Each structure stands twice: as structure tokens, then as C-alpha cells.
Simulated assay, not measured.
Amino acid sequence: MNIGEIAKRAGVSRSTVSYALSGKRSVSDETRQKIQRVIDELGYRPNASARALANGRTSTIGLVFPPAGNHYTGMQLDFIGSVVEAAAAYDYDVLLSPSGVDSDRSFQRLLAERRVDGVILMEIRLRDDRIDHLAAEDFPAICIGRTAHPDGHWWVGLDHTALAAACVRHLADLGHRRIALVNRPEHLLRAGYESAHRGLDGFTQAAAERGLGVRTYCCGDDAPSGQACLERILRDDPATTALVTLNEAALGGLYRGLAVAGRHVPRDFSVTGVVASRWAETMTPQLTAADVPAERMGRLAVELLVERFGRPGAAPRHHLLAPPVSLRASTGPARHETSRDA
């Protein structure tokens, strides 16, 4: 069913039906009601392309996310789900578009063909060409994270610097003196992923303030990589008594590696990090962590984007979140055994 058939049955022109649907020009109440009766009888719903041509809006938000590789982390899935749910509350659909080294053509098509009214960008890099391109196109966008120079952008971010530092201070207060950092994969650090770099900065700064002995490691986003990383940590420095992780996908492997090494958590070894609460609470023992509010971040991102739609030219706004460390069962006082300090 199309506009031409509606016009024929209502006894009006195609343009009159178009005006009645889009509201671009006034149509008499009598004519509008006649058109609406036909629409109701036929069960007509204009397709997305027709709506976009009629009113310049697609009623769709683009969510630009990193290519999955083998899987997405629980944190990423929570965020994606929250964006979809929040968008639905504003009567927006969500179009997912991968963007990475090998898939930026999808991102370019999203903009060139104006398939969406605006975009939310995940996994921001400290220097991110996508944001510069969006700004040049004057295309509404919200970043999840901050570039090295965030002024002038709309964004929702997690203060990874402060959160990693808070984890280090918590361990130091428990008497731990030799601590490791388990970061995201090396290729993400090389690509300039904001969360990996800011978390590393917070970790090293807090460790220096407390005079701690530390080592930092990159780790793949999976359990086997986590176990291999833990084995390397203990091989490099058997006296290590705690770690901070920015890599929730590796957590299961880190715990498994400790069990294989005979290190009881938290009696012999403490584990903490920046992790989504739902994931932290599934660990045994439950993980002491700076809980990532992924669902809240998704909701705030959608709210900011809808605000941009309604206030063109408004000054950029942002939200920087820094949740406290939730104390659970994976951290405890340090035990400095002579055999491990030797």
C-alpha cells in the first residue's frame, strides 16, 4: 500500500496525503480525517525512507561500535542494550554499524546516505578521526569516552584515571606493595583507546604516589589470555600479591591462573579492577571493583543526543562518571611470605 492508493481512495491528491502525513503544510480537519480513515482501514505505515523524505528525519539513531572479533564483553553488551532501550522510550530505532580499521566504509555510508539522525560512538580513541569527520559534517554525535582534547564535543565518559587510581590506593591501604596491572590488548593500546591509556595513567600515578613496585601487562579479551597473563605475572615477580584489571573479559582466566598456582583469593592474592557490577558479582569470590555503570551511560548518551536534536547550536555538554570502589570478597590484607619476597 502506498500514498497513491490512499489518495485515490480518499479522493484527494498525492501531495495532500503527503502534507497530512508530514505536517509540512496545513490540511483541513475534514480532509485530514478522511485520509486518516483510509489509513486506518488499510493499516498503512509509511516506510523509513518515505518518512525521511517527508520530514527530513529517519527516527533512527546510529550506534557505532568496534568490530567484535570473537565476542563482545559483558560491559559492551550491557551498554548496547541500554542504548536500544533508552532510544525506544523516545520512539527511536537503533541501527548498529561497525567501525574499525577494516570496516570504516560502514561508518562512511551511515553518514553519506543520512541513514540516521545522529550517532553514538563507542570505544573512543585519544585521537579519533571519526569525531573530526562528524564535526566537519555538522552531524549530531555523542562520544562514549573522551579524546585527548574533548572540548567542543558532546560525550559521556568514565573517569578511568580516577578509578584505576582508586583501586591502587585500596590495595596499598591493605598493605600490598607489589601490584600488577592487566590492561586491554596491545593493539588497542597502540590504536590509542582512551580507556586503556587513561586507566594506565591512573594506575602508574597512584603507584608512584604510594611508592609501590608495579608491572603492567596487556592482555587479550578472553579467559585463556587472562590465564596466560597471570602465569607471566607470577613468573616475572613471584612476590606480586595483587592486581588491578581493566579487562573484564580476562577475569575468568586470571582467577583460574591463581587457582592453578595455588594462590587463594583473597588470602594469598587480591584482585580488583574497573568492571561492570553484573560481571563482578558473577565471580567467585565476588570482585571488589569500581563498578562500570554501563546501563546509565547508555541512557545518558541517548538523552544527550535527543537534546542535540531539539537544540541545534547548543553549547556541548558532557557527563564524567566516577563510581566508588564496591568492596566485595576478592581483596584482603597482604601476606608477605619470606619465600615469595626472596
Rank of each mutant, 00 (worst) to 15 (best):
R37C: 04
V38K: 05
V38M: 08
I39H: 00
D40A: 07
E41M: 05
L42R: 04
G43Q: 03
G43L: 02
Y44C: 12
Y44M: 13
R45F: 01
P46T: 13
N47D: 15
N47C: 12
N47K: 12
N47W: 11
N47V: 11
A48P: 06
S49W: 07
A50K: 07
A50V: 14
A50D: 06
R51H: 09
R51W: 08
R51E: 04
A52F: 05
A52Q: 14
A52L: 08
L53G: 02
L53F: 03
L53D: 01
L53H: 02
N55C: 13
N55P: 04
R57T: 01
R57K: 12
T58S: 02
T58D: 00
S59P: 01
S59G: 02
T60P: 02
T60E: 03
T60L: 06
I61V: 11
I61L: 11
I61S: 02
I61G: 01
I61C: 02
I61R: 01
L63H: 04
L63P: 03
L63D: 02
V64W: 01
V64D: 01
V64Q: 01
F65S: 04
P66H: 10
P66K: 12
A68G: 11
G69P: 08
G69D: 13
H71T: 10
H71M: 09
H71S: 14
H71G: 05
Y72C: 05
T73V: 07
G74C: 05
G74D: 13
G74R: 10
G74E: 12
G74L: 10
Q76C: 10
D78N: 08
D78S: 13
F79P: 04
F79G: 03
F79I: 09
F79L: 15
I80M: 15
I80S: 03
G81F: 00
V83Q: 01
V83G: 01
V84P: 00
V84Q: 04
V84F: 02
E85C: 08
A87C: 11
A87T: 03
A89P: 01
A89L: 07
A89R: 10
Y90M: 03
Y90I: 02
D91P: 00
D91I: 00
D91E: 11
D91S: 03
D93Y: 02
V94G: 01
V94D: 00
L95I: 11
L95S: 09
L95G: 07
L96E: 07
S97Q: 09
S97P: 08
S97I: 14
S97A: 15
P98D: 08
P98E: 10
S99E: 13
G100F: 12
G100Q: 12
V101D: 13
V101P: 07
V101F: 11
D102V: 05
S103E: 15
D104A: 10
D104V: 13
R105Q: 15
R105Y: 14
R105T: 15
S106W: 12
F107R: 11
F107Q: 11
Q108D: 12
R109Y: 14
R109M: 14
L110M: 14
L110Q: 05
L110S: 04
L111I: 15
L111R: 05
L111T: 05
A112Y: 06
A112M: 08
E113L: 05
E113C: 03
E113A: 05
R114P: 04
R114N: 13
R114F: 03
R115T: 14
V116S: 00
V116Q: 00
V116W: 00
V116P: 00
D117K: 04
